[in-house]
């Protein structure tokens, strides 16, 4: 049964690439640097329309999941053009249908601002990630600067109502709450957009 959030993502699927166009122009270089660490069997959580696939290194075996069928339909041409293997599946980040210790790398891009229960979602990722695996996240988080923080709080009122995106989440703290150790936290824009590397130990 389609949930309200699934319907929401289905609704924006047609305009999603247009809305994220500016971000993709800005974030290509830091994403490519982060994704250089991808290896082995990869889980790509919240693939959306797969805009980041162009920044993935070639030759990987990737399972890409998303809640929305319409988003995955948009991602299919990008997955087929990828120089490697990408398998697209409909799945909720809160309930991953994979056995424990299945993946060497898990990748997320601007996903944990929208996941309903971020700590639970990250705990699920920890379960399916091998003990020596890596979590690579490219996410926006709440700023520590009070002025930037105020702007993010105000805009969050609007984005939560529109598409369920929280601009004021402390994702780095959520990663630690889920039991991960944060290895590296690299700013991509101010202290708001970050490339994060974490391990499950």
């Amino acid at each position: 049964m389609a949930t309200s959030s699934t319907k929401g993502y289905d609704r924006v699927a047609n305009v999603f690439d247009f809305l994220r166009g500016g971000d993709m122009k800005r974030w290509c270089a830091p994403q490519t640097r982060l994704f250089e660490n991808m290896n082995g069997k990869v889980l790509y959580v919240g693939a959306g329309t797969g805009q980041e696939i162009v920044n993935f290194p070639p030759g990987l075996n990737i399972t890409a999941i998303d809640l929305s069928l319409k988003m995955l339909e948009k991602a299919r041409p990008r997955a087929e053009a990828y120089n490697g293997k990408i398998n697209l599946e409909i799945m909720d980040a809160h309930r991953l249908a994979f056995p424990d210790n299945s993946f060497d790398t898990v990748v997320t891009v601007c996903v944990f601002c929208t996941v309903t229960d971020p700590v639970h979602g990250l705990e699920e990722i920890k379960r399916v990630l091998k003990p020596d695996g890596k979590l690579l996240m490219f996410e926006h988080v709440m700023s520590r600067n009070p002025l930037y923080g105020l702007i993010l709080k105000m805009m969050s009122l609007f984005t939560v109502a529109l598409e369920g995106t929280h601009l004021d989440r402390n994702t780095v703290s959520n990663i630690r709450k889920a039991g991960f150790a944060v290895e590296k936290e690299q700013n991509a824009y101010l202290d708001i957009v970050k490339a994060i590397t974490a391990n499950p130990n």
């Binding site: 247009f18 809305l19 994220r20 166009g21 500016g22 971000d23 122009k25 800005r26 974030w27 926006h140 002025l147 930037y148 702007i151 105000m154 805009m155 609007f158 824009y189 101010l190 708001i192 957009v193």
Partner: peptide, 23 residues
């Protein structure tokens, strides 16, 4: 600034437009 942000962010990036424009 809020409305200008909505107008410009698809072309120039969400946060890179939102933060300066509101200030």
């Amino acid at each position: 600034a809020f409305f200008l942000t909505l107008l410009l962010m698809p072309f120039f990036g969400a946060f890179e437009v939102m933060i300066p424009l509101h200030i």
